Simulated assay, not measured.
Amino acid sequence: MLLRRWREFLEPAVVILAGVLAVVMFGVVLYSRGRAAEPARSAPPAVVPPSPPAQIPIPLPSLTPSPSFAPIDSITIERVPVPDTVDLDAEGTIDWVHWGENGRFSLERDADGGFAILEGTPSLPRNRHTASPQRFNWTGGAPLARASGVTSGVSTCGKGNGFTVSAPAGTDSSTLTVYVGATAARGDLHIELSTGKEFDSSWEVRDTSMATSAYVISYQASRTGKISVEWITGASFDAKCGGVALQAATLS
């Protein structure tokens, strides 16, 4: 009796369970077929960053060499009053010379000047004078080492007579100062660079007492050479002894 009732309950349960399993299996099969029919999804395209724009070269200014200027021949001159006292070794940083302290052919100069300033061959007439209204001082000289209050110099008489002084010239600017005098005469100044430049000037003194002046000559040459300065009696106004004089020169 009991077994019969158990079967009454068990058989319907088995049938229901089998139906549920059949439905589940059917669903699994359908799902599997649907997945197989779907096209494969492709991976998203890789994002490639845009290429940077081509660098445009920036033109740089070309380095043009500075123009070089060839040195030229030049002479500038100024005639100035002579100071009451002239310190030759302070002014002549390269060389200095004084004439006439120990006689008409004597020449006192910078012991360390290297004979930069030279006088041309002396000519007659040539006299020693002590008529300079200014005073010249120096130290470090030869053959006279030291002197102060010097008023001496050398002089000449008559038209065409005078003195010549020279100094080195180069591409650097130099200054030659020449201390001269005149008595009843016209002094003619002629300056010449050996490299091709000339300059002329004149100064007239009618008085029979000596007048003095300084010619400051700034010059530059296009190449190594020399400068020559002639101080000549261009005209004499005194038959006795009208002429020119030379006291000193400095180079700096």
Score class of each variant (00 low, 15 high):
Ser174Asp: 08
Pro49Gln: 09
Val86Gly: 04
Arg4Ser: 09
Thr139Met: 10
Ser148Asp: 05
Leu2Met: 04
Pro67Trp: 10
Cys157Asp: 08
Ala46Leu: 12
Thr130Asp: 13
Val14Gly: 01
Pro44Phe: 09
Lys197Gln: 14
Glu198Gly: 01
Ala13Arg: 13
Trp203Gly: 09
Tyr215Asn: 09
Ile217Trp: 12
Pro81Arg: 01
Asp188Arg: 07
Ser155Gly: 14
Tyr219Glu: 05
Pro50Asp: 13
Thr250Pro: 00
Ile94His: 05
Asp172Gln: 08
Pro83Leu: 08
Thr130Phe: 14
Asn137Ser: 09
Val29Glu: 09
Thr224Cys: 00
Gly243Leu: 12
Val165Ser: 03
Ala214Cys: 11
Gly114Val: 10
Ser74Gln: 09
Gly120Asp: 07
Ser106Ala: 15
Val150Ile: 06
Arg7Phe: 14
Asp110Glu: 09
Pro67Ile: 12
Arg135Leu: 13
Gly140Cys: 05
Ser106Phe: 00
Arg206Tyr: 10
Val29Tyr: 14
Thr93Trp: 06
Thr183His: 04
Ala142Tyr: 10
Leu3Asn: 10
Ala145Cys: 03
Ala184Glu: 00
Pro67Lys: 09
Ser194Leu: 02
Pro52Ser: 07
Gly19Ile: 13
Gly225Phe: 03
Ala37Asp: 05
Ser74Lys: 09
Gly158Lys: 05
Ile117Glu: 03
Ala54His: 05
Cys241Ser: 05
